[in-house]
Design a protein around this nucleic acid. Sequence first.
DNA 1: CCCTAGATTTACT
DNA 2: GTAAATCTAGGGC
Length: 187
Amino acid sequence: MTTLPKTFYSRDTITVAKCLLGKKIVRKIGKFEISGIIVETEAYRHRDDPASHAFRKITERNKAMFEEVGKAYVYFTYGMHYCFNVVARNSKFEAGAVLIRAIIPEKGIKIMEKNRGIKDIKKLANGPAKLTQAMRITKEHYGIDLTTNSKLFITEGVNKPGKIIASPRIGIKNATDKLWNFKILIK
DNA sequence: CCCTAGATTTACT
DNA sequence: GTAAATCTAGGGC
């Protein structure tokens, strides 16, 4: 299982968002391993994307989106939730990231159930704040390099994602005409 | 099943 | 001060 390289993330943010579908997120906590297949993503870009955190200017919160591709951008919102993004962009943009919105749990399901406090597998990680809670991703992962980190990284998963469904992004008010939410149906 | 409201921190129109 | 890349519980149907 090889970790996805920097070159994977050095492409257009939207391309990376689509290509991340079907890939696998691996999280190691002590000797335990948690993993899941990515089934939904959203692309957030820079100057052409009013819905992006990076649209206006660089700030303390969004600065990771301007840093090296392949890093993690974790932000805190609604007073109680973390969301997990991967920095990705080509050379045309100064900033960009892909929000991981949902995964299908694979390994470590018992740990995820414990982290989430529920047992319904379908609801374990089917939302951006749910998967961070299930995998224990927090601010301490802000800015880590997913291409070199051994506790949290992304590898090849199922190779053929099949049909990709494009939709408007969720929970935003601007740029709802852009179909930058991508998902696949498993089974 | 669908809809509504509340939780609670951060960042800045 | 208020809106935010959200989730859950609870009530009505």
